[in-house]
Every structure is written in structure tokens, then in C-alpha cells.
Nucleic acid binder design. Structure first.
Lengths: 197, 197
DNA sequence: TATTATATAGACAAGTCTATCTGTTTTTAA
DNA sequence: TTAAAAACAGATAGACTTGTCTATATAATA
């Protein structure tokens, strides 16, 4: 079940262009030109531009999740594993010139009625949220300021908010600030004071 | 200095279409059709489609900020004023079918090199951030879990993250969760225990 | 009332877009 | 070596894009 090299080249070029200049601003002509393949080859591997978009989203999710798991696998302590998520996204955004989240970007480019695309996007987000939930579940029971449910939500929103903010200001300050907040939220609070009355 | 009614009609229709179906998926033809004006009239009031986009962003920022200030003006206590921000955005997103933030959406649709557009977007975000900063400054000095600087960042990221998340899942649960977190963060913590040693 | 500004309709240019099709060449596999 | 599969180049359809232009009609103003 070896995958076609042509197909992979198309997908690679399309992924880069969709991310860097937007889906709607990327034409089929540019893709076949930069991938250096025949027009018919593209339509042989993908039914339509929409089909190519869906393949891009699927591929992007697989790669994103795999890389994220690899990155955070170095950390065993739940607290540091969660904090590593901020480093992961910061590093990624640094590499990609602060273009923002691939999935959020696409969801902003397609029609609201495009349920298939929104499904693909929300699928990726739910997967990240589920990952966070599971790590938070391994934290010591409610030693934090927030309940586990709220902490999980908070970390998710901080990651998303900082990614978007960073993509607007084109810098990593947002993510650094978000990580600092997360660190505070993950701190043990209200330690029983070792005071004898 | 009365503004042209035609200009306003163009801007109103363009605003709706840009938001609901995206900037790139909205053609000049559809705008003049739905605004029921002549093509030449559009190009008399706006130099180009890009010019119309910039006018849209400016108008959107003015309206957004005005409505936000009106909404939160009912609250004097800084804590409740800050929490009202979450209600404001939730109400707005409810009305607009959870289409997400107007400014983030546009930033995802234009080329990265489009600095004029990115300036307009970051201007609106900075204005919101500044507003939050000023209210947080009125809170009792560091009675919260987070320092004022971090609290301000946290509230901003929670708002942005929850807006984006809500626009993907098309529901208000994200904003409700974000508000609940904000409530916790705004709570006075570490009250000096009335315990005598 | 005469003049100027603003609106109208609609043709048109010049280009882009996605997708299909024909026919040829190269690669793969039996 | 031969047959099938997959790549190629490139023309073409047909619809759509932004922006310009001409010419006419309406509305505001002096």
C-alpha cells in the first residue's frame, strides 16, 4: 500500500500554499505549477479542490497530533507535560512564521454551511481537548486553584487564544504569557499550612 | 457632513456578506446586486474591493467598541465589568450565529504580507486589551491568584480562545466555561485567615 | 431655472477560476 | 517483452472576477 509520490508532492505543495497564502487565494494552477505535475494527475488523485482541502485537513491533523505526542512524550510529570504543550505550539509557530492555527484559518475561509470542513476542524480541536483532559486527570486531586474541569478548559482556551493573538501580532510573546499563566494555574495552591494552633 | 445613504447601504451589505460568507467568497457583483446600487456607485465611493475591506474593518471596530462600552457601562465594580465582557461577546455571537470574531476571520483570509489589514486587526485587539488592562488596574491590589499583568493577559486569551472555540462548535458553551474560569480568577484568594497563633 | 453632483444601466476588457478532455509518453508489473 | 496503469502536455469550456467605460437620468444646489 505504497502511496503515490505524485500524490504526496501535490499534498505537500497544497499544504504549504493553503497555509501560507490561504485556501481561497490558492488556485489549482499554482499548485500544479509548483508541484510540477500535470493537471490531469491532480484530478486523478483528487476529485476536486474541495477533496484536496479535506485531504489536507486530514493529513494536517495526523501530522500535528503525532508531532505533539512526540514532543510531549519527553515529559512524564503531568504538570510539565501540559506546559510542554505551550512550548510545542510556540516552537511550531516560530517555524511557520506565526501564521496561526491551520484549522482555525480554514474554518474562517469556508462557508458556514460547509459542515464537512467544520467537522474536520472540530475533530482536531476535540482531540487536543481530550488529550489535555486526560493529562489533567493525572494531576493530584484538586490541589489547584481551579477544578480539573475548569483547569482543562482554561489551558485549552489559553493555547487557542495565544495562538490566535500571536498570529495577529506575529510574535511569541502571547504564547510566553499564556504559558506563564498556565504555570500559575498548575501550581499547588492552598497547601495546608504547617502551623500548629 | 452628512454621509451618503448609498455609501452606507454598500457598507452594510458588504459587512454582512464579508462576515457571513467570507471576504474572498464575496464578489463585487453580489454586493451591488444585494445593495441594489449601480456598479459605478460602488467605485465612486470606494477605490477598490480592498478599500471597501478597510472601510469595513474601520466601521466594525467603531461599532464593536461602542457597543462593548455601552454594554459594560452598566457595571461599576471592576470585577463585574470584566465579567460583562464575556456576556457581551456571548450575546453578540449568539446573535450572529457563532461566526466568530470579525477581525480574526479577516486576518485568516488575507495574505500575510497585507500589512495594512493586519494593522487594522491588531489595532482592534490592542484596544480591547488596553480596555481590560485599565479595568484590571482598578481591582484591589493583587488580591487575586494572578498578578494584574497576568490576570489581564489571561482574561484576554480566555475571551479570544472561547470566541474561536465557540465559532468552531457553534455553541455558547465555550464562552460560558471561559466566564466561569474568569470568575474564579477574579475571586479574592488567600484571604488573611482570621486565626490567631 | 440652470448647473453641478450623484445616481442609474449595462457593455466590456482582461484575466482568473475549476474542471474536462484528447492524445502522447513514461513507468510499472505480469 | 508485452499489457496495463499512471504520468505527461496542453487545448478548451464555461463561469466568474475586478475594474473601466459610455451614456442617461435623477437629485441637490446656486
Amino acid at each position: 500500500m505504497k502511496k503515490s509520490a505524485v500524490r504526496e508532492r501535490i499534498l505537500k505543495v497544497a499544504s504549504r500554499l493553503f497555509y501560507e497564502q490561504g485556501y481561497n487565494l490558492t488556485g489549482i494552477n499554482q499548485i500544479i505549477e509548483e508541484a510540477d505535475i500535470a493537471r490531469a494527475s491532480l484530478y486523478n488523485h483528487f476529485d476536486s479542490k474541495t477533496d484536496l482541502l479535506l485531504a489536507y485537513l486530514k493529513e494536517a491533523e495526523d501530522v500535528w497530533y503525532k508531532e505533539m505526542e512526540e514532543f510531549t512524550a519527553n515529559f512524564f510529570d503531568p504538570k510539565h507535560k501540559l506546559l510542554a504543550l505551550f512550548d510545542f505550539r510556540m516552537e511550531r509557530q516560530n517555524k511557520r512564521g506565526f501564521g496561526g492555527c491551520q484549522f482555525i484559518k480554514i474554518s474562517a475561509e469556508v462557508s458556514r454551511q460547509d459542515l464537512v470542513v467544520f467537522d474536520a476542524v472540530s475533530h482536531q480541536k476535540s482531540r487536543l481537548k481530550f488529550f489535555i483532559d486526560s493529562i489533567v486527570g493525572n494531576l493530584p486531586q484538586n490541589n489547584q486553584v481551579l477544578s480539573h474541569t475548569m483547569l482543562s478548559d482554561a489551558l485549552f482556551f489559553l493555547l487557542e487564544g495565544a495562538t490566535v493573538s500571536g498570529s495577529i501580532y506575529k510574535n511569541q510573546e502571547s504564547m510566553l504569557a499564556a504559558k506563564a499563566i498556565a504555570e500559575k494555574l498548575l501550581q499547588d495552591s492552598f497547601p495546608q499550612p504547617a502551623i500548629k494552633i
